[in-house]
Amino acid sequence: MPQITIDYSDLMEDAFDREGFARALHEATVEIAAAKPEACKTQFRPSAFTAFGYEDPGARGHAVAHVTIGLLAGRTDETKARLTETAVELLRKHVTGGAFTLHASAEIRDLDPSYRKAEG
C-alpha cells in the first residue's frame, strides 16, 4: 500500500516523464496520505488504442491519462480529494511537448479489507 496504477495513451510515451511523475507522486502520497515511502508502488500501463468522443482514433489528437491510487481505508474525503488534485496537477507538469490534448484524471479507492501483500 499504496497501490498506484497509471493508464495512459501510448502516444504520450515521448512526452511523459514517468520517472519524475512517479517520484513526485510518491512524495505527495507520503506527505498528504501519511504513506511510508517504501510502501509506494507504481505501475504504468500504456494503451495502444484510445478513443475520444467522435474523433477518428487515427487522428490521435487526444491523450488520456488516469491515475488510480489504492489506499488502506481510513483517509478522509478531504485527504483523498487533495491527493487526487495533486495527482492531476503532477500529470500536467510531467506530460509536456506532445501534439495532443491531454485529458488527465485521478481517483482514490479504498483497498478491500481482504488486501494482503508479500515481499521477497
Rank of each mutant, 00 (worst) to 15 (best):
P2F: 07
I4S: 07
T5N: 12
I6K: 00
I6R: 06
I6T: 08
D7Q: 12
Y8H: 04
Y8E: 09
D10M: 09
D10S: 15
D10F: 01
D10G: 10
D10Y: 07
L11Y: 10
L11N: 12
L11G: 02
M12C: 05
M12G: 06
M12F: 06
F16H: 08
D17K: 15
G20L: 09
G20A: 09
G20S: 08
F21Y: 13
A24L: 09
H26P: 00
H26V: 05
A28Y: 01
T29K: 01
V30S: 01
V30M: 00
V30T: 07
V30I: 11
I32R: 04
I32D: 00
I32Y: 03
A33K: 01
A34V: 12
A34Y: 04
A35P: 05
K36A: 15
K36E: 15
P37H: 03
C40K: 01
T42I: 11
T42D: 07
Q43E: 14
Q43F: 15
Q43G: 13
Q43D: 15
F44Q: 04
P46L: 02
P46R: 04
A48W: 02
F49T: 02
T50P: 13
T50K: 06
T50H: 13
F52H: 14
F52I: 15
G53P: 07
E55C: 07
D56E: 14
D56H: 12
D56Q: 13
P57C: 12
P57S: 09
G58L: 05
R60E: 04
R60K: 13
G61N: 14
A63K: 05
A63H: 05
A63R: 06
A63M: 00
V64I: 13
A65Q: 00
A65P: 02
H66I: 14
H66S: 15
V67H: 07
T68W: 11
I69L: 00
D77K: 12
T79I: 08
K80Y: 06
A81W: 01
R82W: 00
L83S: 01
L83T: 06
E85A: 09
T86D: 05
A87Q: 00
A87S: 03
V88I: 00
V88N: 05
V88M: 02
V88R: 05
E89D: 14
L90F: 00
L90M: 03
K93N: 12
K93D: 11
H94I: 00
V95H: 06
V95T: 02
T96Q: 12
T96I: 11
G97I: 07
G97P: 04
G98A: 13
G98K: 08
A99E: 10
T101Y: 00
T101E: 12
T101M: 09
L102Y: 10
H103Y: 15
A104E: 03
A104H: 01
S105H: 03
A106V: 04
E107A: 12
I108Q: 07
I108S: 06
R109T: 04
R109V: 14
D110Q: 03
L111F: 08
D112A: 15
D112I: 13
P113R: 02
S114Q: 08
R116C: 14
R116G: 14
K117I: 12
G120L: 06
